[in-house]
């Protein structure tokens, strides 16, 4: 008995479409999960380290010698009229020396705070105090009028801690920020 002729010559390759439905199922589940946990707003923090409350009383004796060290106590006050830069002995006056109430850095023409000018002043200040062995040469006290909004204070902190040169390199200005109240 003769064999049945091979069907190979007539066998055509059937095209099977790739079944991607299981993958689709996975995607449909994964996307809502990731959407749920996605972080669209990137948060950041500003550190503000206060002295511990409990050691303020007990460590009084040890803190005494530090009082004698040279302290700068650089202060920036955010007021309605602009920024006042100063320390415990006095404030920098503005362009016109006659008026003592003139802020060190007045508002710009549009009535907003002139952060860039403040930064310029502080940069100048930083070079002046360099090498004079102040204990607190990296720290700055930020204070403000009672009704100054929080966003201006944060913005001020931004500009007094760091500065960027033309090439985009970042340098420290006064990285240790304290918050104080106007006495």
């Amino acid at each position: 008995m003769a064999f049945k002729p091979s069907m190979r010559s007539t066998n055509r390759v059937k095209e099977i479409p790739l079944d991607i439905r299981p993958v689709m199922n996975l995607m449909v589940v994964l996307i809502p999960i990731l959407l749920y946990s996605a972080e669209f707003v990137k948060l950041s923090i500003r550190e503000l380290n206060l002295p511990p409350a409990s050691t303020a009383n007990s460590g009084g004796a040890q803190e005494k010698p530090q009082e004698e060290a040279k302290r700068l106590q650089l202060t920036v006050i955010v007021a309605r009229e602009g920024f006042y830069i100063g320390n415990k002995s006095g404030y920098l006056t503005g362009e016109t020396d006659a008026d003592t109430n003139e802020p060190s850095v007045p508002l710009d023409e549009t009535g907003n705070y002139d952060y860039v000018a403040l930064q310029e002043q502080l940069k100048e200040f930083k070079t002046k105090i360099e090498g004079q062995e102040f204990v607190d040469e990296n720290s700055i006290i930020i204070s403000a009028g009672a009704n100054i909004e929080y966003r201006h204070i944060i913005k001020t902190i931004d500009f007094v801690t760091m500065y960027e040169n033309e090439r985009g390199d970042q340098f420290e200005l006064f990285p240790q920020v304290n918050i104080g109240q106007i006495i």
Binding site: E47, A146, Y150, R151, I154
Partner: peptide, 27 residues
């Protein structure tokens, strides 16, 4: 962002007086 400074100062002072003295301002 529109909280006035005197309130912020009081909150910072209160946190500092209690055990929480390392403040992180979230922005």
């Amino acid at each position: 962002e529109s909280v006035p400074f005197h309130l912020l100062y009081k909150v910072i002072y209160t946190c500092g007086s209690s055990e929480y003295n390392k403040l992180r301002l979230v922005t």
